[in-house]
């Protein structure tokens, strides 16, 4: 396997809210250990409200109150050496951003300034992060990148409102890759887009990854998109990872009951057999059930599931699952 480029250690990030004088804690990222490698596409899947976006904010070190880092560490590996992101200063963090790690937030098609042309946004970006470029030089950089990625050159001269949502999304992704960062974090890049455009966005991400040979972390609840882009997939439920493995294992040999529901509920062409969605609804992150958070919805729940959270069991070198059905703590496979 390639070298680790982004790693977390027992990461906990909670929203600490003050509701009418009493403190409420939303456990959005609860004990996450990630090990993301160079030159891979890592997908994170799960229902809305399971903490995916919060995890990304924590990885990008872009936390704002009421979100707080409770415990754990996030490590980058910018120059061959691990750096604890939360121990470095603002200026250094700013330097790492865009050059080492860039973040495409959800709904990012609305981040382009509506009153200036796309090329002016490019120029702003180039001037503030590269510096020392004249207007024409900046436009040249923009033009050559747009051409390289196969986007129509007219977009540079358009205002954001003249472009469709999908085109705007592709422009923001292009912008995020301009400084050739080693890691690109994308939050739901294809949600709210049509299927055809969705495919265009996935294609663009894959092209960028192939060209830069960097790491892309993609959060999406759309399992179809995960299957098309990810090398490894992590399944998140109620702030925790419950299963992680190569994309092929996750889709063809899912072991956690939640993953099995996620995969089996997808409608397929040429198959009209009735499909079940996951019963019940996700738990409130303010009031998690005891033990494994999935136990109230799990058809196989046993006594131990309500008492204790299972730790990860390794099925093989890359596939691991946190479920009592698969051995749980002692590591034996059921």
């Amino acid at each position: 396997m390639n070298e680790t480029i982004l790693r977390t250690e027992d990461l906990k990030a909670f929203y600490v809210l003050d509701v009418h004088g009493t403190e409420k804690v939303v456990k959005a990222v609860n004990d996450v250990n990630l090990d993301i490698r160079e030159n891979e596409v890592y997908g994170i899947a799960g229902e809305s409200g399971c903490g995916k976006t919060t995890l990304l904010k924590t990885l990008y070190a872009a936390m704002e109150p009421p979100l707080r880092l409770i415990d754990g560490k996030v490590y980058y590996r910018p120059y061959g050496e691990e750096v604890d992101v939360y121990s470095i200063g603002q200026e250094e963090k700013r330097r790492l951003r865009w050059e080492y790690i860039s973040y495409v937030p959800q709904g990012s098609m609305s981040v382009l300034n509506p009153v200036i042309k796309v090329k002016e946004t490019y120029r702003d970006f180039i001037v503030s992060h590269v510096g020392g470029k004249t207007k024409d030089e900046a436009f040249d950089i923009a033009r050559s990148q747009i051409a390289e990625l196969g986007l129509p050159s007219q977009v540079l001269d358009a205002y954001p409102h003249q472009l469709s949502g999908g085109m705007r999304q592709r422009v923001t992704i292009a912008l995020s890759s301009l400084l050739e960062p080693r890691i690109i974090i994308c939050d739901e890049p294809t949600t709210a887009l049509d299927v055809v455009v969705q495919r265009g966005v996935v294609q663009l991400l894959r092209d960028i990854q192939e060209y830069l040979e960097n790491t892309i972390v993609v959060v999406t609840h759309d399992m179809g998109v995960q299957a098309n882009i990810a090398d490894r997939v992590g399944i998140m439920y109620a702030g925790k990872f419950v299963e992680e493995g190569p994309v092929d294992d996750i889709f063809n040999r899912p072991r956690h009951p939640y993953t099995q529901y996620l995969i089996n509920s997808l409608p397929k062409f040429g198959d009209k057999t009735p499909r079940e969605s996951v019963p019940g609804s996700p738990p409130s992150l303010m009031d998690l059930p005891g033990g494994c958070p999935f136990n109230p919805r799990c058809p196989h729940a046993m006594d131990v599931c309500t008492e204790q959270m299972p730790s990860f069991t390794r099925l093989d070198a890359r596939h691991k699952v946190a479920c009592w059905l698969v051995g749980g703590e002692d590591g034996k496979t059921a």
Partner: peptide, 20 residues
């Protein structure tokens, strides 16, 4: 263009998107 939930059947061809 519908993504298939099967990592062995990824999109292989590039598509052309509407410009405006």
């Amino acid at each position: 263009s519908i993504p298939k939930a099967d990592p062995n059947q990824r999109w292989s061809e590039d598509i052309e998107l509407a410009e405006l």
